[in-house]
Every structure is written in C-alpha cells, then in structure tokens.
Design a protein around this nucleic acid. Structure first.
Lengths: 343, 343
DNA sequence: CTGAAAGCGCTTACAG
DNA sequence: CTGAAAGCGCTTACAG
C-alpha cells in the first residue's frame, strides 16, 4: 500500500506510427519523417501546426520507434557485441562500464559475454554476437597471436580491441610498456636490485608489456633480471599467490616483486606474510590498475593507475569511427604511478 | 602472416530463407517450417530428401534466422533486461554471469546496465530496456520500499528480483536472515559478547536481513546489541573502512565485527590494524559472500558463502516461468558459513 | 510538400 | 502436404 502510493513514474505500453498517423489524420510516412527530424527541420514535412500536434501526441503516448522494425528496414541494428575474458574481473567490468556508457550516449546498445580466454568459447560467442546482428564487436580478450582475430577480420565486420592489443588491429589500451617502466624505474630509484615479476597471462599484451617495461628499466640500470624471476599465471589473487610461492621457493629472495595486477599482488601479500617477510622493508610489492582495494589493503599498495573506464569509452568511439567508414588510429592511454606504502 | 595461417574458423555472411528456398526450389514457407522442426518432425513439411537437402544447404551456409525479423513477426523479442546497482561489484557481476549463462541456454539474450541505486537513473534505465523491447526484466537493485517497482508492476511486464528482495515480488535470493544467524550463532559460541555490524546499504534487503539475523542470534543468547553498534554504509572497502572507523571511535571496543560484505570486511581489516587490534584475538571479523579474495587475505576471512551465480540462474528460470504464464514462488537459496582465521 | 507503395526477413493462418 | 499471401513496424525512393 505504501508501496504504490505517491508514484509519479509510469511505464506505458508502446505506440506505433500508425496509431499516431490515424489519430492526427496524416500518413504514416509523414509521422515518420516529422518525428525523426529535429527542430524546425520538421516543417519541411508538414505545417508547423501539424508538426506540433504530431510531436505532442507522440510525447503524450511516449512513442519510441521499434528498434527491430527500424533495424530490419535500414540494415543497421544499433547493436554492438562485447567479449571480455570474464566480467567478474574488476578491470574488465570497469572497461565494460565505459563501453556501455559511451555506447548508450551514441545510441547503441551492447551485449556482453564472457569468453573465458578459451578459443572454442571465443569462436562460439563471436558467432552468437553475429547471429544477433551486431554491427561491430569490441574484443577485450585478444591474444598476442590470435588466429581467431585474423579469421574474423576477413569477415569484414568492424571491431576494436580494448585492454589487450594484438598485431596492428585498432585498439584502445593503456600504454603498458610505460606502466611497467614506471614501476621498474621507481624500484631502481628506491634501491631495489633484484626484481621478480608475477607476470600474468603469457598470451596477453598487458602481461607481456608490463613485464617488459619493468625488466627493461632494470636492464637499463645495469641490473639483470633472470628468467626464473618471471612467473606467468592468472591475473587473480589465487594466481598471484601461486606465482609468489614459486618465487619464494628459491633462494635468495628478490628484494622487489612486481605483480602486473592488483589482485595478484593481494594474493602475494599473504604469501609474503606467511614467509615472515615484511612489506616493503624486506620485499617491495607493487601492483597494477589501482583497483579500489589497493588503497584499502592493510599495507596500502603502490600500483599503477590505468584508465580502465576511459579505455572502454575510447573503444566504442573508435568502433563508431570504423562503422562510419573512418580509419582511426589505435589509442594508447597514459598510466600513472601511485606510490603508497608497499613499495 | 603467421596470424592468418592455419585458421579453421570462418565467419560467413548471413543467408536468408529466400536464398535457401530459391537454391532448393521450394517455397520460403517450407524452408521456414522444415528448419524450425526438429528431427523426423520435419518430414511433415517436406519429403525426407527435401528435408535433407534444405538442412544440408542451410548448414553449409550457416543459416541463422534474423532475430529482428522473427521478433517483429512473433512479438517475442527473446530479450531480457538486467539492472544491477553496479557491475564493478563482484557480487553483482557474478549474479549477472549466472543470468547471462542461463538466458543463453534458454535462447534469450540479455542487456545489462548499471542503475547505481539512483531512482532517477533506475527509471531511465528501465525505460531504456522497454524501448529495446525486452520481454521481461531482472532487477538486482530493488529497494526495500520501492515505488519504482510498484509502478513497474502496473505496466504488466514480467520481472524477477535477484540478490535483493522487496515486498512479495517474485525473487531469487540468498536466505540472508539465515546467513546472518549463522554468523551470530558462531560468534556467540566462540564466546563473543559484544557485536558490532557494518550493515551495508539501509534500503537493501540483503543488508537488513543479514544484520537482523546476526543481531537476533545475539539477542536469543541474552546478549544485547545497542543501536550505535550498527553502522550503515556502502558495500565496498571504503564504506567498510568508514563504518569501522566510526565503530572504533567509541569505547569500549566490540569483540566482534560482522561486515555484511567481504569488501567492507577488507576495508575494516586495515582500520583494525591501524588501531593496533589483532584479528581475531582482539576482535573477530566476519564477512559475507565468500568472495575469492576472502581466502587470500593475509588473515583469511571467515565469511558466509552465498550462491551468487545460482541466484542469477534461478532468476532467469523464474522469469521464464513468468513469461510462460506460470506463477512461480520466490526462491531463497541456502547460505553456508565458511570458518577461516578471522573469526 | 505529402501519400501510397514496396520491402527488410521472418511466421503462420488460409487455400488449394 | 505445400505454396501464396498477409503482416509485424518501420523507412524511403517514387509519384503526384
């Protein structure tokens, strides 16, 4: 009872052009033309008075064009497909929020789905997006060498990569080489000499470039990073824990650990504690992405802020350029080091 | 070059019924009927040989019905809208994964969007889903008293609530009262006498019921929980930190803190450490949801496992029952206490 | 300027 | 059993 009282929002049933046309006494064509013209432009299609009546009635009945009817007629669905490794991953969820936000602003709707980084599943999900008649696709799950992507490119449907780059395909990513370098330089300046890296997924450009950036910074400082100091694995807390355990199974211990992902860093934190190692006194620990949790950890995490949301937005904008026949350049957004307590 | 070699996946352009009909030499009607019949049923519409030829050709050209054309004709879009407070929230992202998974299995596609728990935005997003002609909606963002929901109910579009309950609307949720009780009883048995609760959002049934469940368990044990021991706030690390700071600004300290969300618990962890308080020796800390991070914390978190993914799946199944004219009962899934080190 | 008509790709009641 | 036809709600070239 209190539930229904005081309600001002209503959700009326949809009206069609024909209903409006009959009500006003003009043809469906005229209503269609008037309603999609903006401002005074509409008077090209009807008298000012008729325009006003059509608009008023459409508004009162909350007319909205049926997207499927328009889609069928114009061969433009207004749909974009988005594939991410997994929406549970905060990073990808944030990228997707940017995608969805910008898509909506541009009049597009998006379908998202998890590919789980599995080739068979990726092919299946891509196929499914195509069945739904998306005009283009945003891939957040590209692999470094990705046969699926080249097969898809042959099909001609426009697509943009976000988060992870691959080959020369159009992408909106973070400059992860720079991000890694920021970490590497910061550690060197802080006097660290022996770096270990919890590198992440070996087929992801993010993992590869963040790792290279940091390792190169050490190399430039005359410090060698041995191959066994690099552990590849999943971008999550469990993956970080496992990689850290491997690193700490060997002596001597490194004096710095770079996890290419905040969650991996959090997983490593527990391992360090279990080994009686203090952060940053014994070992510095640095993450990546500046996830909200980074600042809230018992030992606040030094990390690299990456423009996740913006990457999603730019991804859609690039795709829309592509859909309009343009040939946009890839975008590499700038990361920023956020120094806190852990390293 | 290596990118394109060895590719076995192809993404061919869509074919229409008319193309198939012309190729085989039968009418579009026949092709339509044959293709949507399963097994031998198809021979009701054409000779076994024709059926075989149609199917073979459709398969070779990877025929897929155009969903918009079918939608227009049948007035069934096969679309479901999903509103969540925020996809960045691991819990809702997981619920959504369940929704999407089950929807796909049942031949439905889903649109998700963030409502941010803001009434104006909720109305706007709901409206947008309706414009997209969804057949039903899954709300993951219901408020305890929700005028929007009652307004929406009047419109007649079927909907199901997930994660948060409201009134008597059909929902798939976790039995949060039980979940809270499990926490309360466990703490009482462990000898804790003075409970504080980081309660979460005051308009969310999840927050309300988890809190009640725990407080009632204390009350039943003859232990009083004073109103100032309950702090409401956001379900994230920053919210948990703030609420914990308020709790610890008063003396005496409680000997147990229940955060109705793992992320809030993680935020509280830092505050406890800053106050020089040991977990669980000085204060027990318990979270909720059994997020992957809970097990990976430096002090592994005791928490309540809630069937997030399953809630999403059941939500879609209930919605599909509703769409079929059924009158399903709400579902309350069972939570489970996971005892680790923090409490 | 404005309406009638065609057609996007389907499905399905209606005739033969 | 099978085809022709109508029609879902739009948009847009084509006539008047």
């Amino acid at each position: 009872m209190t539930e229904t009282s005081g309600t001002s929002v209503r959700f009326p049933a949809p009206v069609t052009l024909r209903v409006i046309a009959e009500e006003i006494g003009v043809s469906v064509s005229t209503v269609s033309r008037v309603l999609k013209a903006q401002g005074d432009d509409a008077t090209r299609w009807a008298s000012a008075e008729t325009v006003a009546r059509i608009r008023a009635y459409a508004k009162s009945r909350e007319y909205r064009p049926h997207p499927h009817a328009a889609s069928l007629r114009t061969a433009r669905s207004g749909l974009v497909g988005v594939l991410v490794p997994r929406l549970q991953d905060f990073v990808l969820a944030t990228v997707y929020e940017g995608v969805e936000e910008a898509a909506t602003e541009h009049g597009y709707s998006t379908f998202v789905t998890n590919s789980l980084d599995d080739p068979a599943n990726k092919a299946l999900r891509t196929e499914m997006m195509l069945q739904r008649r998306v005009e283009g696709i945003i891939f957040g799950d590209a692999h470094h060498h990705d046969p699926l992507l080249s097969a898809f490119a042959e099909r001609g449907t426009p697509f943009v990569l976000v988060s992870r780059r691959s080959g020369d395909y159009v992408s909106a990513t973070c400059d992860d080489l720079l991000g890694g370098a920021l970490v590497g330089r910061h550690l060197v300046e802080a006097g660290r000499r022996d770096l270990a890296v919890l590198a992440g997924l070996p087929f992801a450009s993010t993992a590869i470039e963040r790792t290279s950036g940091a390792v190169d910074a050490f190399t430039e400082a005359g410090l060698h990073v041995a191959p066994e100091r690099i552990e590849w694995g999943p971008f999550d807390a469990a993956g970080g824990r496992q990689a850290a355990e491997k690193i700490l199974s060997r002596r001597p211990y490194p004096d710095a650990i770079f996890a290419t992902n905040d969650f991996a860093a959090i997983g490593a934190l527990g391992v360090l504690r279990d080994h009686g190692l203090r952060v940053p006194d014994d070992i510095a620990l640095i993450g990546y992405n500046d996830t909200p949790l980074a600042a809230e950890m018992p030992t606040p995490l030094t990390t690299v802020r990456s423009p996740m949301h913006e990457m999603g937005r730019r991804g859609i904008e690039l795709l829309i350029e592509l859909l309009g026949g343009g040939t946009p350049d890839s975008e590499r957004l700038t990361p920023e080091l956020v120094v806190r307590q852990s390293g």
